[in-house]
Structure formats: C-alpha cells, structure tokens
C-alpha cells in the first residue's frame, strides 16, 4: 500500500472518529435518555470556537488567542458546551418534550448567527485559522503526522466509549432508561426525572463540545459554514443508522455514514459537470433525508440496536429464565 493511501485512510478515519464523538454525545441525550436535540451543530460549534479562542496565538484583530495548550482548549470546550447545554436544558426540560427540540433549534440558529456576526470574537464569516494541530513538529512527515492524529482520536473514542459503557450500566444509567421508558414509575420510585435528564443533557452536550474542539484542532481552521443544520442532520443519521442507545452502534454509524457521504461527494465530483454540481449536492441531501425517514419507518432500531438488558444483576437471572421458557433450545 502506498504512503498516500495510508495517509488518506488515516485522514478519513480521523474525521469519521470526530463524528463518532458527536454521535456518542447525542447517544447520551437521545439514545439513553430520549432527549431530542435539534441543535447538535450549535453545540459542536460552541466547543470548536471556545477551544480555538483558548489555544490560538494572540490575534490583534479579535478578542483572545490565549495560546494555551491544546488539552486546556479541549477541556474548556467540553466545560463551556456542557454549561450551555445545562442552561438550555434547565430552561426547557421541565416543560413539554418537544420544547427542548425547538429551543435547541433556536440555539443552533443563534450560535450560527453569533459566529457569523460577532466579528471581534469569532472572526466573522472567515472564521478562525491557525488553530494549533497536535504533533505539528512532525508535519514534515505526513504519514507519521496523520497516524499520530488518528491515534489521539482513537484514544479519545475508546476512553469515552469505556466511560459511557460504565455509566450506562451504572445505577445512574439504569435510572435514565427507567425514566425514558416509564416516567411515572420512575417518579413513584422517588427518582427526580428532571434532574437526571438535565445531567444527561449536560454530559451529552459536553461530549459534543469536545468533538467540536477535536475536529477544529484536526482541521486547523473553523468557519460558521461548518456548523449548518446539515451537520446536525448527519450526526442524527449516523446515530439512527448505527442504532440509537448502543454506543458501539454510534461509532459504527459514524464511520459508515461518513464513508457513504465521502464516497458520494467523490461520485458527484466525477459524474457531474461543474455547473451542475450544486444541484447534485442538493440531491444528495434529499437522499440522506429520505434515507433517515425510511430507517425510522423500516428499521427504527438501526444496525446494532439497543441492548435490552444492561444490568449485571438481571444478566445472572436471564439464562435460567430463557431455559425455563424454551427448554428445547441449548443455552448460548
């Protein structure tokens, strides 16, 4: 395999994994808790901009550029986005279920507007450049550079995955599911549904912010155009395709949908004449929209689907129950 191909695959996977992180965040909100966030792009943008402001070198024409280490930027991004999610959740989660959807939609529109217009902080339509990339000292060797970047994101995704799986199986995760499945029953058991939902929404938001920061540092440049509603939509498609409620599904869906997306971009570039490419791109979005609706109708569980039983206490009971109901089947 040639060096270019390996470098390209590493680049592709790194990009896909930044989407996987967004998907994992959305999975905490939607998959585990049933909170509908229509403003994923807005929360990702908050993370990207916060981290960019914290880590870029001082810029004379705008606020900030504090030149802090990348790690500080990422943590700051997660904190700031978590806080923003907490505020939005605090405002709406106690109200009707879809008020949260409308409010998050408003957040996305407003964040986009701020990124575009508040030139003294966000750089306006041109965005922020010169965002430090990890391992810049190795930029001369594209292969090592891209593989190391991929390594960083693999570590982030694996750590997040392990932490979220632990949370999912913890008493906290089981309460979230209980609230999602039957709120009245959970309330009767003395669980404060609003508080648990709020915590899940803030944690999911923080993960999205982290994803935004990671993506910004990987690409090295951000602009308001990166955070349009289409991004929200792609992340949703990834989670639904992979299987909402399942963390492995979220990662698989991200890689799969990103592969389809990248491949279709290549197909459009080679099949259509330049003057028709904008139209063909619109058609591509139509197909993704129809595809999402079709999955909702035909296979709402997605590819992997949700694990029904996550409690290790129940897992001990399960084999006996299965043996009792279907005595002819051998135990798996």
């Amino acid at each position: 395999m040639s060096v270019e191909l390996v470098a390209y695959i590493a680049f592709f996977l790194t990009m896909a994994l930044t989407y996987a992180v967004m998907c994992l965040g959305l999975n905490v909100q939607w998959g585990q808790t049933g909170l509908f966030n229509v403003g994923v792009a807005g929360f990702v943008a908050i993370g990207a901009y916060v981290s960019a402001l914290l880590t870029t070198p001082d810029a004379p024409d705008r606020f900030g550029g504090f030149g802090l280490p990348i790690l500080v930027g990422w943590l700051g991004a997660a904190l700031a986005t978590g806080l923003a999610s907490f505020l939005v959740g605090w405002l709406t989660i106690r109200l009707r279920a879809d008020y949260l959807a409308i409010a998050t939609f408003g957040v996305a529109v407003t964040v986009q507007l701020v990124a575009l217009n508040l030139q003294s902080v966000t750089g306006g339509p041109f965005g922020i450049g010169f965002i430090p990339r990890p391992f810049t000292n190795l930029a001369g060797d594209p292969l090592a550079f891209s593989l190391l970047n991929l390594g960083v994101l693999i570590v982030v995704v694996v750590l997040l995955y392990l932490a979220l799986e632990h949370l999912l199986r913890s008493p906290w995760g089981r309460v979230l599911r209980a609230i999602r499945e039957d709120e009245t029953a959970a309330l009767a058991l003395g669980k404060n549904a609003t508080r648990f939902r709020l915590q899940a929404f803030a944690i999911g938001g923080a993960i999205m912010g982290l994803a935004g920061a990671a993506q910004a540092h990987f690409v090295g440049f951000i602009a308001p155009d990166n955070y349009v509603p289409l991004l929200t939509f792609q992340v949703w498609a990834m989670l639904i395709v992979g299987g909402s409620g399942n963390n492995r599904g979220a990662i698989l869906g991200a890689i799969l949908v990103w592969a389809i997306w990248a491949a279709s971009a290549g197909a459009i570039a080679s099949l259509f004449p330049p003057e028709q490419q904008a139209r063909a791109a619109a058609l591509r979005i139509v197909l993704i929209g129809v595809g999402l609706c079709a999955i909702l109708l035909l296979r709402p569980r997605g590819i992997l689907g949700e694990e029904r039983v996550v409690s290790r206490h129940l897992a001990r009971l399960r084999p006996t129950r299965r043996a009792a109901s279907k005595p002819t089947l051998p135990e798996s």
């Binding site: 879809d98 949703w236 639904i240 993704i288 929209g289 129809v290 609706c293 909702l296």
Partner: peptide, 12 residues
C-alpha cells in the same frame, strides 16, 4: 420520533 421524522422530511 414524529418530530425527528418531520426534521428529516424538512431537509429532504
């Protein structure tokens, strides 16, 4: 789920 479907329909 209906809200999400409407979101998909809107984009398409």
């Amino acid at each position: 789920i209906m809200v999400m479907a409407s979101f998909g329909a809107s984009l398409a």
